[in-house]
Amino acid sequence: MHPLLAQRERLLLYLSGWAFLATLLAALTAPGRWTWFEAAALIVPVTLVYAFFSLSIWYLVRAMPLTTVPIPRLVGVHLVGALASSMAMVLVVQGWAAVLRELIRWSVALTAADLRLLFGGGVLLYLLAAATHFLLAAFETSREAERRSFEAQLLARDSELKALRAQIDPHFLFNSLNSISALTSADPAAARMMTERLANFFRASVAAGRQPLITLDQELGLARQYLEIEQVRFGTRLSVAVDADPDVLVLRIPSLLLQPIVENAVKHGIAQTIEGGCVRIEARRRGSQVHVRVTNPVDAESTGGPGTSFGLEAVRLRLRAIAAAEAALDARREARSFVVDMILPSDL
């Protein structure tokens, strides 16, 4: 659809621009021999027809965009267009003058100088219209690009949120199965218990993943189950402490939000230290907010923390999507520990 015909306001603006130019042209061709009114009656209707005719430049601009067609060729095409259209306009003016003479016996006589002036005006008008259409095309293209990038952003955020809904690390499964395999011959009862824990954890996390919100009690339960399984793998290197105020347990939080933080605490904390330590989870109520803190030991000699890890970034994005203003995530490295503080509104 032609962008000027698509909206009435635009078309009106376009035509009033032309009317102004037509009046100007009429003024130029009224060198005393004609009255103002005569000149306008001759020129303005023809120019307005010319205006409508010039709308077709749009299709030329579309077919030969500025970005792909070489400039000399563009200039050539539009120059030929300008000369041809202007020639046509001059012929139409002459015809219209004849009609006027026949119809109401006006004594309008067009001299060669008038025709030259009209021809020049026609060329200029064509070029002006072409420039307008190029501008319009550029405007449309940039708006289209903007719309597409916005759409892409929306799509990306959508799929991101799905992916971020805490994918359980497959290596967790492989390592757990390896532990079970080791226990099978040495301690069959422990192997069976580990199998059950693993099954329960996966079942619970799949169920939690289907719901957008679960209670903090459920989320902490999942974290506990996860850590119990990792305790089998890491033995004495991993101890766990969960400390939550009773009144926060019933509050609802986005499901599996804590899970990647706890996974990080094991993967980047416990697994990177020889002596291991305690993964501590605390949950407190502060007014209309819930404060959750996860602390884990880190290797004192390592420089980086898991602050830029994908897991934490995912949590941060989810928090922003869910409650941008009232939620926050802060992760910091201290001398021998890594601390993640999460603040959530209590009324989710």
Binding site: N178, S179, A182, R237
Partner: peptide, 12 residues
């Protein structure tokens, strides 16, 4: 291996 159970499995 840093995991006791993983060592046990390999030993087996």
């Amino acid at each position: 291996d840093d995991e006791p159970l993983a060592r046990r499995l390999v030993r087996e």
